[in-house]
Design a protein around this nucleic acid. Structure first.
Lengths: 217, 217
DNA sequence: TACATTAATTAGACTAACCTAATTATATTT
DNA sequence: AAATATAATTAGGTTAGTCTAATTAATGTA
């Protein structure tokens, strides 16, 4: 089995590869892991010994197929537990991340699959992030940022790119929830403020920063 | 926060104190923890520094009030998760121990309490072991071993003292379940084999070893 | 291309939790 | 009470994961 630390490295590398391209830098990983660079070098050597990453000194590194599988498994756990916490225990979507960070490291494929079934095989977690299936297949979403839409275009709000409680709370306050229909009514040229129509009823004004963190199908 | 290892030591010490009296020996703890004696001495020094145990060299040791509270908290977690696994996910009572050993270390009082509520505030886990309440109060049961009952005496089967899957499986096969009424029909003098009547219907013959592992109210 | 800046690695140390081998303390037996 | 057996501790070592300080490699710019 892998240690929690290893698993957290794998998850972090996976996410960095997803957003910043195939090859990851020591410093980038150090930053997201909250450790100093030499610790990363050290850890990578061990992990490359276990064939979880390919690593050649000073050239960056990336996950092996094996490493990727472990990472996706953890992401599956994480997102299923988030659904459990929200749907079954009544947590709010901005409260579940830290708990899921603990629960994701429970080692049992069988438990994961039973949990999946208990939850009704959900497709996405409470933030709209897709849940990998039991084979580690993660559906590639074709969602786009609200900030790429033009005036009079519309879509369904299906995810966020900013998962901070502060942002999620803001959305709650603004009355914008997953599944809502959103139509762009106007874009202020000066500062790219968006005026949107939520669910064909409420009008709302949101900053570019917000529009740039909402995913639309 | 405490490490998983510390928590496991605390739990083990708690259980040893419960069964073998107030003061615990290094060797006993080493045995249940599956480590060698010097590791225990080592760990105890650290834990006594944190005021989790009182320790004076070569004299044995016991939990402080603080240590006891942590231990009971973990037992509460463990037993609640066991109920979850059996009641909600469909696990059998002989399958849940190892998973609960992982889940018990999730650190969140709030999660524990929400889980408790979700499960309907159960009083006991799937093996009949009582669940401490949110204040760490563990109801003192007055259950007795079936092996202490005389002929024609009866009671309700409410717990086991042997938690091994082998034993639990045996009970399943023998058709003896928690909550059943059990009456002693005969005790063979030669080898203390018990003939019992389960739920006023089925008769069964059980060894002394079995009779000595069943708790009756 | 040489120089400066930034990024990565090596060297050497620390802590928690473990180990084995050697030693000391306690308990038991004669 | 002395001798023996058992239990506990100390001494010294290991590994995973971290650190700081020093060094080397890669990158960007004059």
């Amino acid at each position: 089995m892998h240690s929690f630390t290893e698993e957290n490295y794998l998850k972090a590398i996976y996410k960095l590869q997803e957003t910043n391209g195939e090859v990851v830098a020591t410093s980038a990983l150090a930053q997201v892991m909250g450790v100093h660079a030499p610790s990363v070098t050290d850890m990578l050597k061990r992990m490359s010994g276990k064939k979880l990453v390919t690593y050649q000194k000073s050239k960056g590194f990336k996950l092996t197929e094996k490493g990727k599988q472990v990472a996706v498994g953890i992401i599956r756990n994480h997102r299923l537990w988030e659904v459990f916490l929200v749907d079954k225990l009544g947590y709010k979507w901005d409260e579940v991340h830290d708990l899921a960070e603990q629960l994701e490291h429970i080692h049992s494929e069988d438990l994961t699959n039973k949990l999946d079934k208990f939850l009704g095989f959900p497709k996405a977690d409470p933030h709209g992030d897709p849940i990998p299936d039991a084979n580690g297949v993660l559906p590639k979403s074709k969602a786009v940022l609200l900030s790429t839409l033009k005036i009079e275009e519309q879509g369904t709000f299906t995810g966020v790119t900013d998962h901070t409680p502060a942002f999620l709370n803001y959305l709650d306050k603004a009355g914008i929830s997953l599944g809502n229909t959103v139509k762009v009514k106007a874009i202020e040229e000066f500062d790219q403020t968006y005026t949107i129509l939520v669910n064909r009823k409420k009008e709302a004004v949101i900053s570019f920063k917000v529009a740039n963190s909402l995913l639309m199908d």
